[in-house]
């Protein structure tokens, strides 16, 4: 689903369990410096070929069909996803409607429809593997597709730069 063109974070310093590799060298660093380092290392990925909603959904528009998921930043904030309640096929939604629910180990979160349209597909793989939302939020973890009522890309969505700024602002 497109290339990674902007990577704010590359986890070369983390092992598979999320531990910092060769952490010993940081032992004497003060806590503030360490916290800052960890925050920088764990910044989220964003992609320039996508549009974003301020509520942390991403949207890819192709031939009048919008594919929707949640961003890497959002899945990181939610923690492990354990259940996705998808919308019903054929149902219509307007911009901003509650359309789906993601249940993580932490909380239940509403997903809002970023465009107006009709549900034509939901990602059935999430029924047995909801953790795809965590492991591949921009790819195999997509949630649903909408046939857009107006095929023009909506103007209220954020560009990758605007969305990255929003995430940065929410961190502080």
């Amino acid at each position: 689903m497109g290339e990674v063109s902007t990577v704010l974070f590359r986890p070369t310093g983390l092992d598979s369990r999320g531990a910092i590799i060769s952490a010993g060298v940081f032992v004497t660093a003060n806590h503030m410096a360490m916290k800052k380092l960890i925050r920088e290392l764990t910044m989220a990925e964003v992609r320039s070929n996508l549009k974003y909603a301020a509520t942390h959904e991403w949207i890819e528009v192709k031939d009048g069909v919008a594919t929707v998921g949640i961003t890497d930043y959002a899945q990181e904030a939610l923690g492990d996803v354990v259940f996705v309640e998808p919308p019903e096929l054929g149902q219509q939604f307007a911009v901003g409607d509650e359309i789906a629910v993601i249940e993580s180990v932490k909380a239940a979160s509403d997903i809002y429809s970023p465009v107006t349209g009709t549900v034509i597909t939901v990602n059935e793989a999430l029924e047995s593997d909801p953790e795809l939302v965590n492991s591949a939020p921009f790819d195999a973890g997509w949630i649903f597709k909408l046939q857009m009522s107006d095929p023009a890309t909506p103007v209220n969505l954020l560009s990758v730069e605007q969305y990255a700024e929003l995430c940065e602002a929410e961190e502080h």
Binding site: L14, R17, G18, A19, I20, A23, F26, V27, H31, M34, K35, I38, L41, T42, G79, D80, V82, V105, E131, N134
Partner: peptide, 28 residues
């Protein structure tokens, strides 16, 4: 505490203590 920070733990306040809620994946 500092070993939790080094491991990249997500820390939360728990009864007045700064404690690790998870180190990456609570499910794992």
């Amino acid at each position: 505490h500092s070993l939790h920070l080094l491991a990249g733990a997500k820390m939360v306040d728990f009864g007045g203590w700064d404690m690790p809620i998870h180190y990456g994946s609570q499910l794992q």
